[in-house]
Amino acid sequence: MHPAIQGLLTIIIGVSACIGYFYFSNIFLDKVLFPARGRHAGRNINRANMVRPWLFLFPALAALSLYLAYPVFETLRLSLTDRRLDGAFVGLDNYRQMFSEQKFWEALRNNFLWLLVVPALSTTFGLLVAQLTDRIKWGAVAKSIIFMPMAISFVGASVIWKLVYDARPEGADQIGMLNAVYIFMGGDTSHTWLTIPFWNNFFLMAVLIWIQTGFAMVILSAALRGVPEETIEAAIVDGANPFQIFFKIKMPQIVGTIVVVWTTITITVLKVFDIVFAMTNGQWETQVLANYMYDKLFRASDWGVGSAAAMIIMLLVSPILVWNVRNARKEMK
């Protein structure tokens, strides 16, 4: 069967199964299990209403538990076992082995670099663009263009930037923009930017910053527009210059949103995989945790160490997780 037809069938089956499940389970609940008639009509209605939320929630909860919650614990278990020994419990051996690997520390160092640089620069650029485009006529077009990379896949962006970083031998016409600009500015010779250890990390980060700035801009520009007009007017009357207005009046009022943007990008950074996988595959000291883990899992087939690396990523994410959950609960009260 052709996959497209299979896909169409799946959509039909999936959608009708969903609707069928919700429709019939509700009918069953109201008509068969707790019918709203007879002696216990009142009690039955109450009981039906107690069960109904769980009917609505069941498919989602089942999928969430199976596809996200269960793997967290299973990965933890796998990280403590050894596949070659038939899954025998080996304690912290996998972690010990991982900590003894040079590549792991390199990945961890790079991940911290990414964590420092990417959210900071994306948020700064986003804020800058949001503020600058606020008052100009063609601001909407500018925003649209800066927002556009959000739609481009990490892999597509990697190709785009690989062309920017392309290097031709000395003397030949450069076809990569960076080298062309570099030589135009008086640079001595062309460089293969992605192979210069340490600095190449920043060339990879540029790709993610390029993608994430649009996200930061959209959210921050909404926040800036939400700043009460009176506070700005009062500042103008008091003789504040535009910079003072921005830094002393607007910024303090949107700090909450800045933190949200920052943490959201931080999570994206922790999971970054495609860019490194496509552009350098961790060569020339550009390894990151997600790619290190993929290497262990599917190239070295070492599920134990791979799981241990995944747990490190989870560990790095968990402060944000806790913080988010606490905020969400606070908001509900």
């Binding site: 996200l68 269960y70 793997p71 967290v72 990965t75 997600a290 899992l297 599920w303 995944a310 988010n324």
Partner: peptide, 10 residues
């Protein structure tokens, strides 16, 4: 925010 990397092997 759970990274989907965790879900791969299980």
């Amino acid at each position: 925010v759970v990274p989907l990397q965790l879900a791969l092997i299980p």
